[in-house]
Nucleic acid binder design. Structure first.
Length: 829
RNA sequence: GGGCGGUUAGCUCAGCGGUAGAGCACUCGCCUUACAAGCGAGGGGUCACUGGUUCGAACCCAGUACCGCCCACCA
């Protein structure tokens, strides 16, 4: 036991010791009912950890430690989400490169020290190598933070979403979905990011305000011009119809007729549809293939033809769509959307078809959440998984799955319900990218060398993971790749959610270690943030439903966000982020954890440096109180002493109540209430009980022996109660007098005893009145009280602790009196 | 437009039917043999607003106003 306890250096000491001792290793010999299994979120390593991560991961760790102490074998893995677009983008920025799949592999390629002005095109394999290289560096930094936070994860269970295991699980799950008809390939209008040149899913959309302008343009009807307002005049060559609301008086005569588009002179019908809104613009809209999602709806429901004009790169296609003359289309061919719009407006102005000048507006436009240009809609062939978006019965089954889960807090389920009820289409899982899990399929090539998409060749499950661009499908040879009558690989990779929707299967080694899997699946807990309920949570439920016909976990705990003091979400772009490592080094891990532990599930919490100071103070107090207690009892005789004094028994009875309350709170995932109960008791223990027994504990005799025994019992229990929250300081104090780790010690049971908690409560109250009197007289707490008179119904209780009260208050003469309520008279001097 | 939270002391939050709470901050005092990175004491609130239910409302009900978030087919 050190002379002057300190927090400094505890993290390094204990992190190393826990690793060496295997303190948190999962015991895989235990049956499922003795296991507590956690489906930990794999953080995206191509970003940086922020304070919010520490906040939510600490919540999970607190629960993991509690479960371990109540005797569960805790399956607490961690993973790194390293596959996907975020990594690709980071590789591009860090190394100044760009993936060009048409280039050959260059084994000699070394990226420049600093990214140049122009991105260097490299082959897909070179690019993927750089992705691996960079994520390995990032993952190391992440691990350091998590270890220092004191997460009790079993590092031997580490997985990555691009690793062999994850790829195999991803591909296997997909193949099963495909076989059962839950996954399918379809050519359809798809939301498309023109910068990343990939399709994106509904779940990855976000609305942003974007400047635009209303353009009033005239179409030619038999009875004169029809004025249409549009924000996207460049899509005029893609126009396939006009549409107005069926009850709109102004257009009754036009329904069923057709009009000619300006400039292009294409004949398009005027149709009625209930989604057209009479009070928007002129009440009549042009339908283009495709300007927005409503266009897609109209196009589908009104069975309109397709006139695509926008290509994968966001530019207008070099050739006009069918039915549109090359003149004047050549004016806009190959142009970006922006310059095509300018040109069309010029042409409309020249031809007199522009009514007035464009009126600038700000409107809401759909973006890919990681993108910086508005999404276009392009018809492409993509893989989908059925999610209920087009099937009411299936949707109801997913809602039912949501109801099977215990949500913490319960109202978070509403977000799940809203999402499932609002789905508009199946889940698009393919991405036209490079660093991801490839689809494990190939397509036969017909005699003309065209792929037969209706008959994909699936990989065999034994061969997983496969890369179809280098592996060969069953029954073919490499020589047949790309030749008529041979085969070709599916070029796409899966969206990262298609892999992370399988984290319980990946961490539990589904299909590669079924003995493990059946001990840890379904999991007990899914901890996560609320903004990814629609993505991660829902997709995991979906995959589990299809493969195992059950929910993937029993409980879902949703941590809130960390807001900066202005109540805005902390984010890197706003520059208001404190890095976790700074925080941990500056305040100590236990202090940071204390702050996190005070955040309840589902509640957004303002970042508050004040809470960190309190946590640090608490941690130091635990060390000092431990030192005091352990420094006392060394002179006691052999064998455990008995707790005989009423005050000591009273304190232990109060502590038993605290154990009961903390345990109940943990059982309902309320770590904050547990901490509050323990903390409240601990401060009273230090400020009142320790002061009351101090004198007696110093004076050898039976009274001292009782105090020593009680103090030790209390310390033993308190260290264990604090252990889930403050793992470093409790382990340190535990190591001074106990064998083994406090984190492997059993969670305390409320010790039955015959103590009356009221004795301590009343003695503390009397002491408080004495202190008040001294404080008001501006005297030292050691000042002598010549006579203390206590009266009231509680007087009998005070008598049981009379000597301790007198010693703590430095009281000369003690008098008990009768009375209806507690009165304390303090005569000083 | 629909939904979900929130509004309590200067700040961060607890309380969710029975006389307003904690910590921080602030003020005053104390070197008291675990801790001065400590200890003691104190000041400070018409519990957002308006109605209603009740013997009694911060707490339940209805509505209003702000704040935050989620969702949505806003040419």
């Amino acid at each position: 036991m050190p002379e002057k306890p300190t927090l400094d250096g505890l993290e390094q000491v204990w992190v190393a010791r826990w690793e060496a001792d295997g303190t948190y290793l999962f015991d895989r010999s235990r049956p499922r009912e003795q296991v507590y299994s956690i489906d930990t979120p794999p953080p995206t390593v191509s970003g940086s950890l922020h304070v919010g991560h520490v906040f939510s991961f600490t919540h999970t760790d607190i629960m993991a430690r509690y479960q371990r102490m109540i005797g569960k074998a805790v399956f607490y893995p961690i993973g790194w989400d390293d596959n996907g677009l975020a990594t690709e983008r980071r590789v591009q920025n860090v190394y100044g490169v760009r993936c060009d799949p048409s280039l050959p592999y260059d084994p000699e390629f070394v990226p420049p020290d600093k990214p140049g002005k122009r991105e260097i095109p490299i082959s897909r394999r070179n690019f993927v190598e750089l992705c691996h290289k960079l994520t390995a560096i990032d993952e190391q930094a992440f691990e350091e933070v998590w270890r220092r936070v004191g997460l009790s994860v079993d590092w031997s269970l580490l997985y990555t979403t691009i690793g062999d295991g994850a790829r195999a699980v991803s591909q296997r799950a997909f193949l099963r979905n495909l076989r059962r008809g839950e996954a399918y390939l379809a050519e359809a209008p798809t939301l498309w990011d023109v910068s990343f040149r990939t399709a994106v899913a509904q779940a990855e959309l976000e609305d942003r305000e974007w400047p635009g302008a209303f353009h009033r343009i005239s179409f030619y009807g038999e009875k004169g011009p029809v004025w249409v307002e549009t924000t996207r005049p460049e899509l005029l060559p893609a126009c396939v119809a006009l549409v107005a609301h069926p009850s709109d008086e102004r257009y009754q005569d036009l329904f069923g007729t057709s009009v000619l588009t300006p400039l292009f002179g294409v004949e398009v019908p005027v149709l009625a549809h209930h989604l057209a809104e009479p009070d928007k613009g002129s009440g009549i809209a042009m339908i283009c293939t495709f300007g927005d999602i409503t266009d897609v709806t109209w196009w589908r429901e009104l069975r309109l033809p397709t006139r695509p004009v926008i290509g994968w790169d966001g530019r207008l296609l070099p050739e006009p769509p069918e039915g549109v003359e090359p003149e004047p289309y050549k004016e806009v061919a190959g142009k970006t959307v922006h310059s095509a719009r300018e040109r069309i407006v010029e042409l409309l102005r020249e031809s007199g078809d522009l009514g007035g000048e464009p009126r600038p507006v700000t409107r809401t436009v759909k973006f890919y959440e990681k993108g910086d240009k508005p999404l276009e809609i392009v018809t492409t062939r993509q893989w989908y998984i059925r999610n209920g978006g087009r099937d009411a019965e299936l949707r109801e089954r997913f809602l039912e799955r949501g109801r099977e889960l215990a949500w913490h807090p319960p109202h978070m389920r509403v977000r799940y319900d809203n999402w499932v009820e609002g789905l508009t289409g199946d889940w698009l899982i393919s991405r036209q990218r490079f660093f991801g899990v490839p689809f494990p399929v190939w397509y036969p090539l017909d005699d003309d060398g065209q792929p037969v998409h209706d008959a994909p060749i699936a990989a065999s499950e034994e061969a997983l993971p496969v890369d179809p661009s280098t592996d060969v499908p069953p029954g073919y040879t490499e020589e047949q790749r790309g030749v008529p009558g041979g085969f070709t690989a599916d070029p796409d990779v899966m969206d990262t959610w298609a892999t992370s929707s399988l984290t319980p299967q990946i961490a539990g080694r589904w299909a590669s270690d079924d003995d493990l899997f059946q001990r840890v699946y379904p999991a007990d807990l899914r901890p996560q943030a609320h903004e990814i309920i629609r993505t991660w949570l829902f997709s995991t439920v979906l995959r589990s439903h299809y493969e195992f016909d059950k929910a993937p976990w029993s409980d879902v705990a949703i941590s809130g966000w960390i807001l900066d003091p202005d109540r805005k979400k902390m984010s890197k772009s706003k520059g208001n982020v404190v890095t976790p490592m700074d925080l941990l080094e500056q305040h100590g891990s236990d202090a940071v954890r204390y702050w996190a532990a005070n955040g309840r599930y589902g509640v957004d919490t303002a970042f508050d440096a004040g809470q960190l100071k309190i946590g640090r103070r608490l941690a130091i107090k635990i060390l000092n109180a431990s030192k005091f207690v352990l420094g006392l009892a060394e002179s006691d005789g052999p064998g455990p002493a008995e707790v005989t004094e009423p005050l000591d028994r009273s304190m232990l009875a109060a502590l038993a109540d605290v154990v009961r309350e903390a345990t109940e709170a943990f059982q309902v995932y309320d770590h904050t209430r547990a901490l509050e109960a323990v903390e409240r008791f601990f401060w009273a223990f230090c400020d009142d009980y320790l002061e009351l027994v101090k004198a007696r504990a110093y004076e050898p005799g039976p009274g001292a022996a009782s105090a020593h025994a009680a103090l030790r019992q209390a310390l033993d229990v308190l260290l264990r109660l604090f252990a889930p929250f403050l793992p470093f300081v409790t382990e340190e104090a535990w190591s001074w007098w106990r064998d083994g780790s406090v984190h492997r010690a059993p969670w305390p049971a409320p010790e039955p005893g015959d103590g009356d908690p009221a004795v301590l409560a009343v003695a503390s109250e009397v002491l408080r009145r004495v202190r008040k009197a001294k404080s008001e007289a501006k005297l030292s707490m050691r000042a002598e009280v010549s006579r203390l008179t206590v009266a009231g119904p509680e007087a009998g209780l005070v008598r049981q602790a009379q000597d301790d009260v007198c010693a703590a208050g430095n009281v000369e003469e003690f008098v008990l009196d009768h009375g209806d309520e507690l009165t304390v008279e303090v005569r000083l001097g």
